[in-house]
């Protein structure tokens, strides 16, 4: 009789469907399949896919690799008194970026149109790599070294903000990324 009473017909599963329901189920199912196949399609034909390459790393090893890169490719310092090193690694090279409470380290200067293998890892808690205003957002874990091949398109000054809550100074965790011609 109604949805709060037991079904009137004992063999309710034999009641044929109305046309409205049948058409909608078919249409909805087709749409669901289209949405499902969009994801593998984009892996083949699309440009924006998150890398599956990741390694377990120790914080001290990751810091060592980062420091080695800074020593080799540092071009200047930025941020006034903060003296954050700015590095300009060659195109195609492995680039390291540390996330820790509450900074991104170092600042990268990349060339537009060139690809870089960016290694992202946190040394302590979870952080969120959020590149603005591009709006690319990636989770950064402690102990998991995530390797992304990134190709910046337009020259300019970009910001990296932390968008995973990481404690009382979370909102101060912001840095730069420069893209030059």
């Amino acid at each position: 009789m109604s949805a709060i009473l037991p079904p009137q017909e004992r063999v309710w599963w034999k009641q044929p469907l109305d046309r409205v329901e049948l058409i909608w189920i078919v249409v909805a199912l087709i749409w669901c399949l289209i949405m499902f196949f969009m994801m593998p399609y984009w892996h083949i034909y699309g440009q924006q896919n998150l890398s599956n390459e990741a390694y377990r790393s120790k914080p001290e090893d990751f810091v060592r690799k980062t420091e080695a890169m800074i020593a080799q490719y540092k071009v200047r310092e930025d941020g006034g008194d903060l003296k954050v090193p700015v590095v300009r690694p060659p195109a195609g090279s492995d680039v390291y970026m540390v996330a820790q409470l509450w900074r991104w380290y170092p600042i990268l200067e990349l060339e537009a149109g060139k690809s870089y293998r960016i290694h992202l890892m946190s040394l302590d808690w979870l952080h969120g790599f959020s590149l603005q205003p591009e709006n690319i957002n990636i989770q950064v874990h402690p102990g998991y070294e995530h390797v992304l091949t990134v190709t910046p398109t337009n020259p300019g000054t970009y910001s990296i903000i932390c968008n995973e809550y990481c404690g009382i100074n979370h909102h101060t965790m912001v840095s730069r990324l420069y893209v030059v011609k």
Binding site: W42, L50, I136, N137, I138, N163
Partner: peptide, 12 residues
């Protein structure tokens, strides 16, 4: 919940 679209939405 779409794998790639999540990149421009995650944690915003």
């Amino acid at each position: 919940g779409t794998e790639q679209l999540n990149l421009i939405i995650h944690n915003t």
